[in-house]
Simulated assay, not measured.
Amino acid sequence: MNPTDGKSISSRPALSEDERLDERKRERSEPIALPAHVAGSGRLDRLVDTARDYARAAASENTLKAYAKDWAHFARWCRMKGAEPLPPSPEMIGLYLADLASWSSLSPSKSASRPLSVSTIDRRLSGLAWNYAQRGFTLDRKNRHIATVLAGIKRKHARPPVQKEAILAEDILAMVATLPYDLPGLRDRAILLLGYAGGLRRSEIVSLDVHKDDTPESGGWIEIMEERALLTLDAKTGWREVEVGRGSKDRSCPVHALEQWLHFAKIDFGPVFVGISRDGKRAREKRLNDKHVARLIKRTVLDAGIRSELPEKERLAMFSGHSLRAGLASSAEVDERYVQKQLGHTSAEMTRRYQRRRDRFRVNLTTAAGL
C-alpha cells in the first residue's frame, strides 16, 4: 500500500491550530443544505431544518453518538500521522484498521493500547462509511486496501461472540421480588416483566408512549386489552406488533404490573416510563433513559442473589439489557417460530443465538441416520 503517492507520511506538514479549528468546524457542519445556485428563503430554510431532522432520525441516537466518536477518533489518528481524513483514502483506512487491531497510538495508557475486538473494528469502519456519506463522499469497503486488511484481521483475531447471560423465569421472579411496592418499585417491576415477556430491547422499553403520536420521539405505543397488551414498536427491523399475554398470577403478570404503574403514577398521556420525584411520590414528565434499564437489571440481579457463587464484578459483567431478550428465547418452551416472531428476528439462526438453554439435540441426526 502507498497511501501518500510516493511521499512519506512523516514528511507531510502538521496542521496548524487555525487549520485544525477550520477542520473541526467542517466536521460539525450540517450535511443537509441548499444547492449553491438556489436562493434561500424562509420557507426553504425551514425545509432544510426539517430535512436535517429526518436525516438525524435515520439512525438511533446511540448509533449517531457512536459514529461521531468513530469519526473523531479517525480524524485525530490522521492528524497524528500527518494525513488528512478527507477525501477518503482506502490506503490510509487500511493502515488505520491495522493499527486498531494491533495497538492504539492515541493514548499512552496501558489499557488503551489493547487491540480492539473484530466486532468493534467492523463497527468503526461502518461509522467511517456513514460519516463519509454525510460529507458527500463514498467509501468503497470492497477496495482491496480495506477488504484484504479487514479479512486478515478477522482470520487472525476473530473470536466467538461474548454473549450475556440469560435471565430465566426463576431469575426474573426473584428479581421483581426484591422491589418494593412504592412508585419506583411499581415502575421498575413493570419494566422488568414487560421487557422479559415481550423480549424487548431496552431502547424499545423506554421509547413506548401511552398512545400513538403522543410525542415526536415515540418509538411505539401500547393497547391494553382484557387478555393481553399489544405493543406497536418502531424497531430496528421496522414496525412490528408484540403481544404480551397476562400471566397466571398477578405478581408475575406483565400486563397487571403495567396497569398498576400507569394507575398509581397517573399516566394517561406521553411516555410510559418516566422519572420520579426525589421523594418518590410523583411521576415526572421526562422519559427514562435506556441506561436505567441496564442499571436496574444489574442491581436486581445482585439483590436477588443470582449467580452468587461468583464475585460481584463478574456477576455485573454477565448481565445486561439483552439478558431479558435472551431469557425469553431460552425459557419459552414453544415452537421456535413464535419466539422468532416475538423478538422480531428475520431469521431463525439469529433467534438461536439468543437461546442459551434450548435443547440443541432434540432431533438426533445420528440415530436418524441409522447409527
Rank of each mutant, 00 (worst) to 15 (best):
L100N: 07
Y354V: 00
S323N: 02
K164Y: 08
E204I: 01
E336A: 15
M80C: 10
H145L: 09
S119G: 11
S16E: 07
E333D: 15
S248L: 13
A190S: 04
T351P: 04
E336W: 12
R307T: 00
R189E: 05
D45L: 09
P180D: 15
E91P: 01
F319D: 00
V118Q: 06
S323R: 01
P90Q: 13
V206W: 04
R201E: 06
W221I: 01
R24V: 11
R187F: 03
I222L: 14
A55R: 12
A294I: 06
A112F: 13
A112Q: 15
A257R: 03
A169T: 12
S117F: 00
L208D: 01
R358E: 08
G305W: 00
K110Y: 11
P108N: 12
L328M: 08
K286W: 05
A83D: 07
E223H: 10
N62M: 05
G270T: 02
S8E: 13
I146C: 04
S331G: 10
A229L: 07
V162L: 12
I153S: 04
V293N: 04
V274P: 00
I146N: 03
L173E: 12
E241T: 10
R282T: 07
R315C: 02
L343T: 02
E336L: 15
A177P: 09
I205A: 03
T300S: 11
P184A: 09
Y132W: 08
V48L: 06
W261P: 06
I224N: 08
R24K: 14
G195H: 01
D290Q: 15
